[in-house]
Amino acid sequence: MRIFRKKSVSEAEMIQGCAAGNREMQKLLYERFAATMKGVCLRYSKTSFEAEDIMHDAFLKVFKNIDKFKGDCPLEGWVRRITINTALSHLRSRLHKTEASETDELVEIAEPETAFSTFAAEELMELVRSLQPKYQAVFNLFAIEGYSYKEISEMLNVPEVTCRSHYLRARNMLREMVEKSNKIYHEKIS
């Protein structure tokens, strides 16, 4: 009796297969990065549906452009970058729907550090997703992805000072939300 074993596929083979349009290889790549990319998409979206829409578009772009992947960076980083760019383009299409533009003045308020350590990842995710799109994008890019303000300003095509302002506003909003939820929690307990 022959035992069939699943053949392990190297990253290079997978890339080559995807470039050739091999559906099995494409599925393999999807399965390898789907969970991580869903996490990324969730941070840039408001709903799970939207996150999957972004993910859908992002993977289509990945498969379409994988022949351009030169291998000078990790594949995951390349896929992540495409996913982030797709999420940002989704975000841009929504930006005109948001409220009137606010002044880009720097609002640096020295406040005591809020303890986020008590929050689980899911709760933090919910907090981030509740931010307005433009703050959400800047916060994600700066605080989580680690991009500099300059890079973010280029990615979002906004001035650097605006990025800084948006990040500070996002941070303050998160603090307020945490404090509010803490307050509700304490009231319920008392």
Binding site: R23, Q26, K27, Y30, E31, A34, A35, T36, K38, G39, V40, L42, R43, S48, E52, M55, H56, F59, L60, E113, T114, F116, S117, F119, A120, A121, L124, M125, V128, F142, A143, I144, G146, R171, L174
Partner: peptide, 26 residues
């Protein structure tokens, strides 16, 4: 705060719905 978020959300993973791959394939 920044580190906290990066640590918890940087590698955050969530399972996509089952039919997402079908949609992509389509």
């Amino acid at each position: 705060m920044q580190a906290e978020f990066r640590q918890k959300l940087g590698n955050y993973q969530a399972a996509p719905t089952d039919n997402l791959w079908d949609k992509i394939e389509l």
